[in-house]
Deep mutational scan, measured.
Amino acid sequence: MLEGKVKWSNSEKGFGFIEVEGQDDVFVHFSAIQGEGFKTLEEGQAVSFEIVEGNRGPQAANVTKEA
């Protein structure tokens, strides 16, 4: 699992980007967020995730919010 911080997200469009130190930003779709209820990410929020190869390149999977 990698750790990063949410660079920005748009809940209306359903995606955002995660900033990882020393690496390119990672695309995240809201379907990759683990948990119940409305899935949102806040700018600056710490997250853990895996990287998978998506249709348009690397993207985050199994995203969990850190406490």
Score class of each variant (00 low, 15 high):
Arg56Gln: 08
Ala32Asp: 09
Gly54Leu: 06
Lys5Pro: 04
Glu53Pro: 11
Lys5Val: 14
Glu42Gln: 13
Ala67Ser: 12
Gly44His: 05
Lys7Gly: 04
Gly57Ile: 00
Ser9Asn: 05
Gly22Arg: 03
Ile33Asn: 02
Val20Met: 08
Val63Tyr: 00
Leu2Tyr: 14
Val63Gly: 01
Ala67Pro: 14
Ala67Lys: 12
Gln23Asp: 06
Glu12Thr: 11
Gln23His: 14
Leu2Cys: 12
Ile51Gln: 02
Gly57Gln: 02
Val47Cys: 05
Ile33Met: 08
Val52His: 07
Glu50Gly: 05
Ala61Val: 13
Glu21Ser: 11
Glu42Asn: 10
Glu21Leu: 12
Val6Leu: 07
Phe49Tyr: 02
Glu43Ile: 15
Val26Thr: 04
Lys39Leu: 10
Gly14Asp: 03
Asn55Asp: 11
Ser11Glu: 10
Phe30Ile: 07
Val28Met: 07
Glu53Cys: 15
Val26Ile: 11
Ala46Pro: 10
Glu36Arg: 06
Ile18His: 01
Arg56Asn: 10
Gly44Thr: 03
Gly37Ser: 08
Asn62Lys: 09
Glu12Met: 11
Ser31Ala: 07
Phe27Leu: 04
Phe17Asn: 00
Val63Met: 02
Glu53Trp: 15
Ile33Cys: 05
Ile33Pro: 00
Gly4Thr: 00
Val6Lys: 00
Phe38His: 12
Gly35Ala: 07
Glu50Ala: 08
Ser11Ala: 14
Val26Pro: 00
Ile18Trp: 00
Gly37Cys: 11
Lys5Asn: 08
Glu36Trp: 10
Glu21Ala: 12
Gln34Val: 14
Glu36Ile: 11
Phe38Arg: 10
Pro58Asp: 04
Arg56Val: 06
Gly44Gln: 04
Lys13Pro: 02
Ala67Gly: 12
Gln23Trp: 12
Gly4Glu: 04
Ala46Phe: 14
Gln59Thr: 07
Met1Cys: 11
Gly37Trp: 08
Phe38Ser: 13
Glu66Tyr: 14
Gly14Glu: 07
Phe27Thr: 01
Thr64Leu: 10
Leu2Lys: 10
Thr64Gly: 05
Val20Asp: 01
Ile51Trp: 04
Arg56Cys: 14
Ile33Val: 11
Gly54Val: 04
Ser11Arg: 13
Asn10Gly: 03
Val28Gly: 01
Val47Pro: 02
Leu2Asn: 07
Ala60Asn: 02
Ser9Ala: 15
Gln45His: 06
Met1Trp: 12
Ala32Arg: 00
Glu42Cys: 14
Asn55His: 14
Asp24Trp: 09
Ser9Gly: 05
Ala46Leu: 15
Trp8Ala: 00
Phe15Ser: 01
Asn55Cys: 15
Ser9Trp: 15
Phe17Tyr: 06
Gly22Lys: 04
Ile18Arg: 00
Gly35Asp: 08
Gln34Met: 13
Val6Arg: 00
Val47Lys: 00
Val26Leu: 08
Glu12His: 11
Val52Thr: 08
Pro58Glu: 04
Lys65Gly: 08
Phe30Arg: 01
Glu66Gly: 14
Val6Gln: 01
Asn62Phe: 08
Asn62Leu: 07
Gly4Asn: 02
Val6Phe: 06
Ile18Cys: 04
Ala67Thr: 13
Leu2Pro: 01
Asp25Leu: 07
Phe15Gln: 01
Phe15Arg: 00
Gln59His: 08
Phe30His: 05
Ala60Gly: 03
Thr40His: 10
Glu42Tyr: 13
Phe30Tyr: 10
Ser48Arg: 15
Glu36Lys: 09
Gly57Phe: 03
Thr40Lys: 09
Glu43Arg: 15
Ile51Tyr: 05
Ala61Leu: 07
Asn62Val: 05
Glu21Val: 11
Asn10Arg: 03
Ser31His: 07
Ala32Gly: 04
Glu42Met: 11
Glu66Val: 15
Ala32Ile: 03
Ala67Met: 12
Val47Gly: 01
Gly54Tyr: 06
Ser31Phe: 05
Lys39Arg: 11
Lys5Ile: 14
Ser9Leu: 15
Glu19Ala: 14
Ile51Ser: 03
Lys39Thr: 09
Gly44Met: 03
Gly37Ala: 10
Ser31Met: 06
Glu53Leu: 14
Gly37Thr: 09
Gln23Pro: 02
Trp8Arg: 00
Leu2Gly: 05
Gly35Glu: 08
Glu36Leu: 10
Val47Phe: 01
His29Asp: 05
Lys13Met: 10
Gly57Arg: 06
Lys13Thr: 04
Val63Arg: 00
Glu66Asp: 11
Val63Pro: 02
Arg56Tyr: 13
Asp25Met: 06
Asp24Ser: 13
Phe30Gln: 05
Phe15Ala: 03
Ile18Ala: 02
Arg56Ser: 08
Ser9Thr: 15
Val26Gly: 00
Gly22Pro: 02
Glu3His: 15
Ile33His: 02
Val47Ala: 00
Val47Arg: 00
Phe15Met: 03
Phe38Glu: 14
Val63Gln: 01
Phe17Met: 05
Gln34Trp: 07
Ile18Tyr: 02
Val20Ser: 05
Val20Phe: 04
Ser9Gln: 08
Lys7Phe: 05
Glu19Phe: 10
Phe17Gln: 03
Val63Cys: 04
Gly57Ala: 04
Gly22Leu: 05
Gln45Ile: 08
Val26Tyr: 03
Glu19Pro: 02
Gln34Ser: 10
Glu50Trp: 14
His29Phe: 06
His29Ser: 08
Thr64Val: 14
Trp8Glu: 04
Ile51Arg: 05
Asp24Phe: 12
Val28Asn: 01
Ile51Pro: 01
Glu66Arg: 15
Pro58Met: 09
Lys5Arg: 11
Gln23Gly: 11
Asn10Glu: 04
Ala60Glu: 02
Glu53Ser: 12
Ser48Gln: 13
Lys39Ile: 09
Gln34Gly: 09
Gly44Asp: 03
Lys5Ala: 06
Val52Cys: 10
Asp25His: 03
Glu53Tyr: 14
Gly22Met: 04
Ala60Leu: 01
Gln59Ile: 10
Ala60His: 02
Pro58Val: 08
Glu36Ser: 11
Arg56Leu: 09
Asn62Gly: 06
Lys7His: 06
Phe27Trp: 05
Val6Ala: 01
Val28Trp: 15
Gln23Leu: 12
Asp24Tyr: 09
Gly4Trp: 02
Gly35Met: 09
Lys65Trp: 11
Glu43Ala: 15
Val26Asn: 00
Phe30Gly: 04
Pro58His: 06
Phe17Leu: 04
Asp24Arg: 13
Gly57Met: 03
Leu2Phe: 13
Gly14Met: 11
Phe30Pro: 02
Ile18Ser: 01
Gly44Ser: 03
Lys39Asn: 10
Ile33Arg: 00
Lys65Thr: 12
Lys7Val: 08
Arg56Gly: 07
Ala67Asn: 13
Asn10Trp: 08
Arg56Glu: 06
Val28Cys: 06
Phe15Asn: 01
Val63Lys: 00
Gly54Arg: 05
Lys39Pro: 10
Lys65Met: 13
Asp25Ala: 06
Val26His: 01
Phe15Val: 03
Phe49Asp: 01
Asn55Leu: 15
Asp24Gly: 11
Glu12Leu: 13
Gly14Gln: 11
Arg56Ile: 07
Glu21Phe: 12
Ser11Ile: 14
Gly16Ser: 03
Lys7Tyr: 05
Asn55Trp: 14
Val6Pro: 02
Leu2Val: 11
Ser48Glu: 06
Val47Trp: 00
Gln45Met: 12
Lys65Asp: 03
Asn62Tyr: 07
Phe49Leu: 05
Leu41Trp: 04
Thr64Asn: 11
Gly54Ser: 10
